[in-house]
Amino acid sequence: MLAYALLLSAALFVIGTLGVIVRRNAIIIFLSIELQLNAVNLAFVALSRYTGIEGQLFVFFVMTVAAAEAAVGLAIIISIFRHYKTVNVDRFNLLKW
């Protein structure tokens, strides 16, 4: 079952990656990133059956980081939306110049 869980984690990660690449909505890109994080968490948890409790500890830390990231990221989205009146990332191209 462990190996299948790892495969599931890989599949979730790939889907998350697809989401990050193909979507324009900043919120959904964010959700895709959370999906990727969850895929990783799943792999950690599965491997903790094989290597010990540390895997679960990492999941704990990843969740904390994800929470912080969500807070800051959403704040940024709000801030940008206030300026552009949209969350379409194609509009956020100031980095180009």
């Binding site: 193909v22 890109i29 990332v89 956020f92 191209n93 100031l94 980095l95 180009k96 110049w97």
Partner: peptide
Amino acid sequence: QTGQANTYA
């Protein structure tokens, strides 16, 4: 450098 987050990703 398209300036688009998708490309960077």
